[in-house]
Structures are given as structure tokens and as C-alpha cells.
Amino acid sequence: MATQIQLEVVTPKGAVISEQVDMVTAPGYAGVFGILANHAPLLSTIKVGSLVYKKDGRDDVMMISGGFCEVSNNKVTFLVESAERGTDIDIDRALRAKERAEKRLAEATAQQEKIDRARAEAALQRALARLKAAGQQA
């Protein structure tokens, strides 16, 4: 029996990671869930948040945005719109994005800018996830 599981994170801009890891923790539809080697086949939607993977006793964090994940044959594949390693996250930029999104949310009137609002909310979520992932990494 394998003791490790193959982790793949794929975005429209290419594969971000392809590695053997000990454990993966991801923000699933119903909450954060963990995946160990030899997990049963699973298909789940993924929310914006932090993907944590453990390898050689070390935790690494990655910020991922929405998508889904598939587990089969001791391989877990995340198909997400964007992914960023915790170490690559530009904290200043994320902070600025957060402020910008908050400002826009405060200004947007309920009805008339529904799309802008949704966009700002998504941006805010992403910024928060980035900050969190960066924080976890440190």
C-alpha cells in the first residue's frame, strides 16, 4: 500500500504542482476535509480558501479559488480557477485588494450594481484567502 498520495493542482494557466505528499487538507463544499493515501474515489466542489499539504513533516499552504477536486487511484486532482503558493503571495497586494474590495462593497448600492457587488465580494474573498494562506505559511 502506498503511503503517499499524488497531488495535482491544475489551473487554466497550467499545472501548479504535481507532487507526492503525505496528506492534503482542502476547503470542500461542506467544510474543510483531509485526504490521506488510498482515499476512496471522491468528487467534491471546492471553495475559495487554503489548501494545505503535508510532506516530510512540513506543511505547505496554497491559496486556491473555486473549482472542484477529484480523488481516484491514489491521486488527488484539484481543478481550480487560480492557485498560488503561500510563499508566492504578495501580502501588500492582497491587503490593498482587500481594502479596495471593502470600499467598493461599502459604496455599491444594493440593486443597481449587483454585478459589481458580486465581483467585489469575490475579490474580497480571494484577498482574505490569500492573506490567510500567507499567514499560515509563515
Partner: peptide
């Protein structure tokens, strides 16, 4: 293989 779906297949 039989997959575990989370949430249900339809919702995914």
C-alpha cells in the same frame, strides 16, 4: 469506480 460525491451528483 464508485465515487463519493460531495454534495450530491446533481448539485456538483
Amino acid at each position: 469506480a464508485v465515487y463519493i460525491y460531495e454534495p450530491s451528483q446533481e448539485e456538483i
